[in-house]
Design a protein around this nucleic acid. Structure first.
Lengths: 207, 207
DNA sequence: GGCGCTCTCAATCAAATGATTGATTGATGT
DNA sequence: ACATCAATCAATCATTTGATTGAGAGCGCC
């Protein structure tokens, strides 16, 4: 009879539960990957019954879609945190780098789960529908910065903005896949990206 | 052609079966991802019984390891196809680009399965043990090219070889994740990489 | 023929897993 | 006090899935 006492109120309103479920799912995905995601584990992580989980989120498909949505929300919120208006392309690029640095620090699971979803989007149209615009959003932001940077004369003038954007997002994403023994610091990568695209890079991570 | 003709007979000798199993597994992973890999599907794809599959490959773990090995073999074979000795860093870089182009054309499933494995390596030490050296091998090849390129004076002289290598492999890997609507051609990406690192790029995909 | 080895399969198991059912609990409005 | 509804759970179901078993078939060799 000596069950551990529930520390918080027993019932929670719908939306809070959904968010808690999404958060738990993200934690598990970050740890075990999408393949290792089990409804039971999520329920246990939240501290509720599997049936309750299914009450709030009808199916596993819906659950993954929910996670994708929270990912999008976090991502957009992060990018909206710093105003871009009136800034030069160069400033925007550094801002973008800072955003990434911040995300790496504060929400590492965001990127892990994101890459996991990206992989899945290849064969799951429902996920693709949410993740594709998200990734596009990120890339387009870089593409736009490069386009303006060339215009403003602060960037190398023969840049192909779309290709440069893909290279940049690819490098940042790959930086994450650094499970490898081939250790490179984020500052090294960002510094090299500066030298690759900017005419007179500040060349110091300090900025 | 000095080898024996394919024994169409009911029975196949061990090593051939193992290769057929690996090939089938790769096809399925490419289509449905590692999460969607089922021993039954593989057996059906090869045209054998599940038990027979387990006779040749004891467990699913072993099977995935086997796939990782064939991946490594294909990868190394591809890279060994063109001799590197006596070539300049610039020539080597272009050779590397050509290799990638070739792989994209001839063995697209190689890269799909590889990225899938990379993702899994993060939490599966057995896979990591095989995939990590492979990815490192690829990156180190680029790092070495960049190092020599700077030395030879044909590359931008402030390159950080390790960072540049990561950017390059990241860009190529990300090119693959181009499920997105944000379409960029491989030539665009390779061209931009040239301009980013080379002093006087040929600047034409023709080379 | 008989022996031994490799290879194959139908049948089956045990565990995992997504989902459902039917009942109970608490809050809220009247 | 009562009705209603959202939220919860224990128990259970129906499949799926990795793996095993036991019984052979084909083949070479003596």
């Amino acid at each position: 009879m000596t069950f551990e006492a529930p520390p918080i109120s027993k019932r929670e309103s719908g939306e809070d539960r959904r968010l808690a479920i999404a958060r738990a799912a993200r934690a598990i995905i970050a740890e075990k990957g999408l393949e290792g995601l089990r409804t039971r584990d999520i329920a246990a992580h939240v501290g509720i019954n599997v049936a309750t989980l299914h009450y709030h989120v009808p199916s596993k498909e819906a659950l993954i879609a929910l996670v994708a949505e929270t990912l999008r929300d976090d991502f957009k919120a992060q990018s909206a945190r710093h105003p871009r208006t009136g800034k030069s392309a160069l400033q925007c690029l550094y801002l973008e780098f800072d955003d990434f640095r911040e995300t790496v620090e504060d929400m590492p699971d965001l990127i892990i789960v994101l890459t996991e979803m990206v992989e899945r989007a290849r064969r799951d149209p429902a996920i693709a529908e949410i993740i594709t615009p998200l990734y596009d959003f990120w890339r387009l932001q870089f593409a736009e910065i490069f386009r303006r940077g060339v215009e403003e004369g602060s960037f190398r003038n023969d840049i192909d903005p779309a290709a440069a954007a893909l290279i940049t997002t690819g490098a940042l994403a790959d930086y994450w896949r650094q499970w490898t023994s081939f250790r490179v610091s984020l500052d090294q990568v960002l510094g090299e990206l500066e030298r690759a695209f900017i005419i007179n890079p500040v060349s110091s991570q300090g900025r």
